[in-house]
Amino acid sequence: MEKYVCQVCGYVYDPAVGDPDNGVNPGTSFADLPADWVCPVCGADKDSFSPE
């Protein structure tokens, strides 16, 4: 599964790791993240991410 980079702060969403602090289990693809999920570092929305 593809990693996605936040264009605002540089955080990389890695599906293998997920975002457990915000209830996203490892193995969740970027596409499957909820629409209201935001970058855990800077709060940017999903639209601010691009494939790595």
Binding site: V8, C9, V41, C42, G43
Partner: peptide, 9 residues
């Protein structure tokens, strides 16, 4: 007023 990334989170 939060101003995230202006210029830190």
């Amino acid at each position: 007023l939060e101003t995230r990334m202006l210029h830190w989170p």
